[in-house]
Design a protein around this nucleic acid. Structure first.
Lengths: 271, 271
DNA sequence: ACAATTCTGTTCGTAAGCGGACATAAAATA
DNA sequence: TATTTTATGTCCGCTTACGAACAGAATTGT
């Protein structure tokens, strides 16, 4: 609830997979949990168990899904869009610790522990998600072994991502980190278009807006990106990868190792 | 195994709590699991279950308890000393993501998940620990509800510490971070003496050695610390707290909230 | 006691990024 | 269309920290 419309401008190169956007659709189709990697990786039987409890919601940019100290009532499985976990340093100062998209979930790990959020969770890029009550999931989990396994793996993948981000923020330049962020975002959204202001990027990276502007300009001059007000487009992925630090590749590889997304391929699990 | 002697120079202000140091003692006493906070917080009945599997070991400075990609065979419950989790960026470049002492454990969380280490785990300051095979703990866990609970809480406390460190490293100056580190170390060891080289500190903080030297000199001039080759002594904790960023207090508070150490209150412990 | 090693002190030029300010331009709103 | 809001462009002085180099001092090992 509290969520209604779809943001404009998300269609561009992204709508390809499901066809033309259409706000009113039979629910059964819109519910399609074939867009969230964790759900994809879940064994069909377990997926069937989850299905009745999954509720489709729209993620609006800027929306705060959770805040520090708040009880985690829902687990979100994004189907599109990008969500940030932010850690608070001062009441008005936040740093992004983690980026979540259709490859993951919000609240799956912490939500089933103490049940209280350690981070502020904000929608950065509009999208859709399937959500489910944490309490329900907690009850179901013992009966859905594949999901339990995925939860464990995803928990480690998340930690791994945070650890790498920590090292990266500590050691690497803003330019490198900006490239990393754009590349990750690109993977999350399956789109070269990153609909974010430089100001938003600056806050996530924990740097000044002017520094982002300078980096962005430099990247544009080299032809790696092109940007206009509120949008950055990746025009040369190879260039971005070369300019980025190795953290992007490391994070990507670690994720694939922990959660290979051919997981369902055979009946259940391998590895 | 592979561990024998005790490092010199760890006694100073620390031996107060348990009386005069004595290297040869009846094992039953040395085993005393009343020094590790997680074990202290465990219900006596569960502790009795664990007891026979806990093996005392000495932690030698520089010792690598675990490395990236290695299977996690043991869970360590430090009784003294300080251990760092390091994330690798390049084969020769590491950043500390987490500091662990007698308030926590190594391998308790990740060790029982995929069982493969995401970090390099290194002993920074000599000490002792009780260790136990991960496989054994995994079997026992369902029968020790208080330990399960603690594992969950500690997992969150760890994540919280990493998140805060991430934000801190991203936003705060080396001086602030150095103060934070010293204060945390002081809590871990219950001693004002930090037996570490500036070089080691630099690597953990992910900065240049000369920068640490400069900060250390400045702190010494202000009377907050005093240092000599390989040792830093905290001489004015209040000064350090004021010079440190708020992250120290935040980390401390979060930890106490998630793992209040009056958990068992009555039987033993003080501190 | 001597040599080798390991820390620390110090210097210095340079680069990255901060922080603040102000102008301009594009959107959103009325 | 006019107005307000929001995003970007740009400038500049300043601080922090890097990076590299070398000297001196404390330890350790022999």
């Amino acid at each position: 609830m509290s969520i209604r419309r779809e943001s404009a401008g998300e269609s561009s190169s992204m709508a390809a997979s499901t066809g033309a956007p259409n706000s009113i659709r039979p629910r059964i189709f819109e519910l399609g949990n074939d867009q969230n990697r964790l759900l994809i990786a879940t064994d069909p039987q377990d997926r069937a168990t989850l299905q009745p409890f999954l509720e489709p919601v729209t993620l609006l940019p800027g929306e705060v899904l959770l805040d520090v100290g708040q009880p985690i009532d829902y687990v979100y499985f994004p189907q599109s869009g990008v969500i940030s976990l932010l850690t608070m340093v001062q009441p008005d100062q936040f740093v992004e610790t983690c980026t979540i998209g259709r490859e993951g979930a919000v609240g799956l790990v912490t939500g089933l522990g103490s049940g209280v959020s350690l981070s502020r969770v904000v929608v950065q890029i509009a999208g859709r998600a399937l959500r489910m009550r944490s309490a329900t999931l907690r009850e179901i989990l013992p009966n859905t072994p594949s999901l339990s396994d995925i939860k464990m793996r995803y928990g480690e993948a998340l930690i791994s991502q945070v650890l790498q981000t920590l090292a990266c923020n500590t050691l690497h330049s803003v330019e490198e980190r900006l490239c990393r962020w754009l590349l990750i975002c690109r993977d999350r959204t399956a789109s070269n278009t990153v609909p974010l202001t430089q100001e938003a990027l600056a806050e996530m990276l924990g740097v000044q807006r002017t520094t982002v502007t300078a980096s962005a300009r430099s990247l544009q001059e080299r032809g790696f990106i092109r940007y206009r007000r509120g949008v950055i487009e990746c025009t040369d992925v190879t260039g971005l990868q070369e300019t980025s630090c190795e953290c992007y590749a490391l994070m990507r590889d670690t994720f694939e190792r922990l959660l290979p997304y051919t997981y369902t391929d055979p009946p259940k699990d391998q590895l």
